[in-house]
Design a protein around this nucleic acid. Structure first.
Lengths: 342, 342
DNA sequence: GTGAAAGCGCTAACAC
DNA sequence: GTGTTAGCGCTTTCAC
């Protein structure tokens, strides 16, 4: 009973043709002020709501953008559960989209085919990729003309799309530098999964750089690599750190989640942070300020990341951007209680 | 160049009419096996992707469901940032939806009008409400015939819709009972916001019940009420707890986030959990297992909640459900290190 | 300035 | 069994 009101009803009510109503609604052509007024009145009177589906079909523009997330075990659960980072990016995306009249569709990425089909089936105006996907997927997507923005991607193929990151290398540098300044010489590096994560690789480069500046050579023994960014994984890495005894006095973990897991493991084995080990994380999740001890970390503005990504995508969709964007958001070190002088 | 392939192309390729293709694709009417085969071949050959927009317009069914979340400061950021609970529900919703051929649209709830318009504009097949909204909104939505599932709602008006909760009252009871069994007699109750949160009210009833069974009368002084479910709020409540000195020895908080904030405050003021205070939370977020000390809490299966909600909604959409669903998911107490004998 | 009408890609009577 | 055709609600040439 709500859905019933069509452009035709409005036209009839205003005593004009459907075309005219459409003109007014789209701000197109020169419609006389008087008819325009009549139409607008009718729209208000009837509480007319344009049917986006029809518009979408007619204009080939859906005003919807797709947000692709990596799937773990065929579900988003792990990703959301273990790293609330993602949901925070999404809130930024949602905010900008809503303000610009776009809706967001969220889906886990299946194979490249599904992904392509999703776009055509749903008439998506643009796509946002959050996280790392297979190179294959990026290649496949290239055959589409839909604007795509990649978040946190450094892969070779990523160059063909708009890119948003934070300054991961600087983050790694700052974290390590901070530990060095506190007098630590043997600093562990715990990555989510180094071999396969360009983000962590960048942070690793920063780590190396800081060490080099301090004339410390990288000790492969102190490089730990897990499987994912989960507390559980962090906990396991923490146990590995413990196994090395006093071979190291500090750890830089590439995510807060990892750092928190490490702290837990150290703690349970009778070690004190920061007395026995100094720990630095990355992200600055809200929880990191409320852990015991509170976590020293590299802050990135995750909401902002979502905002900028969505803004870039929408600009691309609306043709307001010509070249490929390549945006680096700043990071900063936040000193709290998980680090102290050696 | 992908979008180009329409049902007409397929029809031509298979040497049949568009209608026949449609029949085959929709499994409708009796099409001879032979033509069916030819059509399917053509579909495969051409990699035909049905245009959902067109289907949506024609069938008045979008295969999209809307997920409404409460807005704080006009953004979802707070809600996602402070309570990763929501994203976990969403993963459950996403999983079921994807498996059933539905896409999910996520949006913050503005006013009731916007919400109604969203449905009609986007042709949404159903709506999922996560959290508490104004009574007004529920009333407004009643004028629509779109199926709606409410999650975590106990409001009077909620009765007109499908409802999914966990057994909040039992959860409150179990938490309190656990503390009583440990010998605590003065147990604080910290709510997110009692007056306005039916969920917390239920948990409060459980708390009262357990106390009554132990012949302990409720002490109003021990009831704390905040503004939201944030670490920050928990921290403030923790300070209030501290101010009461030894008037209480244990606290039941209605969310893990709150509990974690409380622990932080206690900790920073030199108190030991569980030695000085026993703390019980609610939710069993992943972080709760990795905090120091790990948190005793009432577990609810949040992913499952999302799954059941989406299943219910989809069944309602597809007419496979006649009466209003009213589902209570189980809870259980998970004993960890934040509680100990008095 | 405004309107008639074709068409976006698909569905579903209805006819054959 | 299969095809014709009239919509679904909107946009957009192209006349007037």
């Amino acid at each position: 009973m709500n859905q019933k009101i069509t452009i035709r009803d409005v036209a009839k009510y205003a005593g004009v043709s459907p075309a005219t109503v459409s003109y007014v609604l789209n701000g197109v052509k020169k419609v006389s002020d008087e008819t325009k007024y009549r139409v607008l009145e009718a729209v208000k009177e009837l509480n007319y709501q344009p049917n986006f589906t029809a518009i979408s079909l007619s204009k080939r523009k859906s005003n919807m953008i797709g947000v692709m997330l990596p799937l773990v075990d065929d579900s988003l659960a792990t990703i959301f559960k273990e790293n609330h980072y993602y949901s925070e990016v999404i809130s930024g995306i949602e905010y900008v989209s809503r303000k610009n009249g776009y809706d967001i569709l969220i889906s886990g990425a299946g194979n490249p085919e599904d992904c392509k089909n999703w776009i055509t089936k749903r008439n998506l105006d643009g796509l946002l990729f959050l996280g790392t996907f297979s190179e294959n997927l990026y290649k496949e997507m290239k055959t589409l003309s839909t604007p795509i923005v990649l978040i946190d991607t450094y892969e070779e193929y990523a160059k063909h799309y708009h890119n948003i990151h934070v300054d991961d290398e600087l983050g790694g540098y700052l974290a390590t530098k901070h530990l060095l300044q506190l007098g630590h010489r043997s600093i562990g590096f715990v990555a989510h999964r180094l071999t396969n994560s360009p983000v962590d690789t960048k942070r690793f480069i920063g780590y190396n750089k800081a060490l080099a500046e301090a004339n410390i050579s990288v000790n492969q023994e102190l490089i730990f690599e897990g499987h994912d960014s989960s507390f559980e994984n962090g906990y396991r890495m923490g146990e590995k750190v413990l196994a090395l005894g006093d071979k190291l006095t500090a750890v830089f973990a590439t995510s807060d989640i990892l750092a928190l897991g490490i702290m837990k493991a150290l703690n349970e084995h009778g070690k004190q942070v920061p007395h026995d080990y100094s720990i630095v994380g990355f992200d600055d999740l809200t929880i990191s300020n409320y852990s015991t001890p509170s976590l020293t970390t590299v802050r990135q503005d995750v909401f902002k990341k979502g905002v900028v990504s969505a803004e870039t995508l929408i600009q691309a969709i609306e043709g307001k951007i010509q070249t490929l964007a390549r945006i680096h958001l700043p990071v900063e070190i936040v000193k709290r209680d998980s680090t102290s002088k050696r």
